[in-house]
């Protein structure tokens, strides 16, 4: 404030003298005009300045601000400051993949997926790690509103190959296979990840129940039986479900290793209000796939979802 005042006063005084000088060299009225003009200039400028001036407001150049931010406790930062902090770290060391990954996740979480993807890709160029590919794939999926695009699939495939124990890539690869209609591959991915995860891992249950739900949906015609029940004549739906069960039974006769088939069968039985039949289907499935812990896990998950006791056929 004091320095500012001094600077302005100096400038104002210098300008006033410069302005008045030619008049002061003359005599009489001219001198008076010179003094008046000088005073008008300096005082008027000060007055015009104070119309909206904020002499106390400090400047906030970016670099000093960042230094202050770096020194601060990260816990106390606002989200905007955290973002600036991360960007600053990335700017200072472009190879700092930890900061880059955090920044990418921050951006992905705030709907700036494109930028997030660019950061993940740059981090991958420095160090091709499974978790970075995983982040990349997930962000691409979010950007495309849940669709696992070929690009995302490539990222997940790489991540899965690097670290098969990581749950998300396997889950999304399964989702991609499921979307493409390859239920066996989807079941393999999902089953594989379920068996690799610990019993008490929260992901395990979540993935298993989601996988069981998807795999048990009837696949023919793409029609959802739940939707069909609305409005349609009851006998028609009954007949449809009967037909579906019959076809499933024949198919499973020929290929008992079709886990999706068993799950669908159980679900169809449940729709007929036949819990015993559903439990029986699950039990037969378990028996048909004895050496497959993944299939067992999926069957258990669906059984749990239907509230059925676990029985062996």
């Amino acid at each position: 404030m004091i320095i500012f005042t001094l600077v302005c006063m100096t400038i104002g005084a210098a300008a006033a003298i410069w302005l008045a000088r030619p008049l002061l060299q003359e005599s009489g009225a001219a001198r008076l005009i010179g003094i008046a003009a000088g005073a008008f200039l300096a005082l008027g400028a000060l007055g015009a300045y104070f119309v909206n001036g904020m002499p106390d407001a400090p400047g906030a150049p970016y670099q000093p601000r960042m230094e202050a931010l770096r020194a601060a406790d990260p816990e106390t930062l606002t989200p905007a400051e955290q973002e600036a902090w991360l960007r600053d770290a990335v700017r200072r060391d472009p190879r700092d993949i930890e900061a880059r990954r955090l920044l990418g996740r921050f951006l992905a979480a705030t709907q700036r997926e494109l930028e997030a993807i660019a950061h993940f890709e740059q981090a991958i160029r420095v160090s091709p790690q499974a978790r970075l590919f995983n982040d990349l794939g997930q962000t691409i999926v979010t950007l495309n509103e849940g669709v696992v695009t070929p690009e995302a699939q490539r990222a997940f495939t790489t991540a899965h190959a690097e670290d098969p124990a990581m749950p998300e890539p396997a889950f999304f690869l399964g989702a991609a296979a499921y979307e493409a209609g390859d239920r066996a591959a989807a079941a393999a991915f999902w089953g594989g990840i379920i068996t690799r995860l610990d019993e008490d891992d929260p992901y395990r249950e979540a993935i298993a129940s989601r996988a069981a739900d998807l795999l048990s949906r009837p696949s023919m015609g793409g029609a959802d039986p739940a939707a069909l029940t609305e409005g349609a004549e009851r006998p028609d739906v009954e007949a449809m479900i009967d037909g579906m069960i019959a076809r499933l039974e024949t198919r499973l006769e020929a290929d008992p290793a079709d886990i999706s088939g068993w799950l669908t069968l159980a679900r169809a039985r449940m729709m007929q209000d036949d819990p015993a039949g559903a439990a029986d289907a699950l039990a037969r499935g378990r028996a048909a796939l004895p050496g497959d812990p993944a299939a067992r896990a999926l069957i258990s998950a669906l059984g749990a979802a239907f509230g059925l006791e676990e029985t062996d056929a």
């Binding site: 400038i11 200039l41 002499p55």
Partner: peptide
């Protein structure tokens, strides 16, 4: 402070 000096200079130029 730079900004405020700038503002003062504009006021000075006006006058």
């Amino acid at each position: 402070m730079i900004a405020e000096i700038g503002r003062f200079l504009i006021a000075l130029a006006l006058l």
